[in-house]
Design a protein around this nucleic acid. Structure first.
Lengths: 210, 210
DNA sequence: CCGCATCCCCAAAGATACTG
DNA sequence: CAGTATCTTTGGGGATGCGG
């Protein structure tokens, strides 16, 4: 039953693909990069992935030591999936893949979840010394906290920010449109509250070239 | 016909996986990292990969702009597959994946081709200033040329070396055993000719920790 | 509800044989 | 040598259902 399909090669690239090469595996891991998620949240962010395959991928990734199943302390007691330490060490792989994939074609009617937008901001953040900020970003109902210290992004995680200097609210697509320079924030429908100068600096630091 | 299976996401990681995510695709690209190869050479280095899937992957990778089909000038006029410039830009992805995959389990009866061994030497080469060398490595019938300048690996490609200081000859498994420290060169069956001090320095620079 | 398991169907991969 | 043709097996997409 558990066929353990492998490339049968000693090469570390092949062994990495033995772990991560099945369809959807990398995208499941990607959804956990900003923190633990529940099964149904994963399913919601991965349209086209059926429940059978999602459950299978999570089981395989757990077995291979990339993902860990956690039960949150009550109240709530929700079951969530989180990256192990080894799974978190995939960051350099994702960073390299994201830079390379920027030049790959965008499929028609492409879905864009909030996590990839925030991850892209982190991967392509341009540090410019001389400013500090705490910004809360709310996209499609998801809440994220960013911390900038001396112009460098020092923290980004899911969840509300404590005493933010500014808040950005809108859809994933809106923030992405602002990042690409397609639209200014107001035209994109991205609401800015709080310190508008801080928000502008942040949007500048994450603006994509081209 | 061409189904164009895609994740349908705008995320650059997902788009990269649209191009590279099909089974065997990354390993086909890996086999081209050290230079162009013919169809049958690819097939020989990728046991378990059938001719149908290999032809399909090559066609898809060519269509997406990762691989280019070349016809060598006569005499010979062999058809080879080579990486495009974009394909060559996958190097950081492979480097990150290889580092991560080092900690993944080695499948039983693992195959080990000569290319992965040389690629591993390049990825994990430890620079130590103060020496220069040209070394030819012959593994399983494949020939490679390495150039070290001031202790840094400045060139590695398939093909014979011009006027090498030393030559290593053996199997891929033998050189790998030496790199891991499992066996000394002679016990592993790795023949060293020419300047033994240079060969020793090279083997030191590519020795794997742990 | 959330977290899957079952079922059905098609598409992709493995194996083998064969051809320009 | 460089693939295509064919067949079988496996894995993935989609819908539904069921237990906690």
């Amino acid at each position: 039953m558990t066929s353990a399909r492998t490339y049968g090669q000693a090469c570390p690239v092949a062994r990495a693909m033995d772990v991560l090469g099945e369809r959807w595996a990398m995208l499941v891991v990607r959804e956990l990069r900003l923190g633990p998620r529940r099964y149904s949240d994963l399913a919601a962010q991965l349209p086209g992935l059926g429940p059978t395959v999602l459950a299978a991928r999570l089981r395989e990734l757990e077995r291979s030591g990339v993902v860990r199943r956690e039960t949150l302390p009550p109240p709530g007691a929700a079951r969530v999936y989180a990256l192990t330490e080894w799974g978190a060490e995939l960051e350099p792989v994702f960073a390299a893949l994201a830079r390379w994939g920027m030049r790959a074609p965008v499929p028609p009617d492409a879905h864009l979840g909030p996590d990839p937008v925030l991850l892209g901001m982190r991967t392509f953040f341009r540090s410019t010394p001389g400013w500090d900020a705490v910004v809360e970003v709310r996209l499609d109902g998801e809440v994220y906290a960013l911390r900038v210290e001396d112009g460098a992004l020092t923290d980004l995680h899911r969840g509300p920010a404590a005493d933010p200097d500014a808040t950005l609210t809108g859809t994933a697509g809106a923030l992405h449109a602002v990042r690409t320079g397609t639209l200014p924030p107001d035209a994109a429908g991205l609401a800015v509250t709080g310190d508008r100068a801080v928000a502008g600096r942040l949007l500048d630091a994450v603006r994509l070239p081209g």
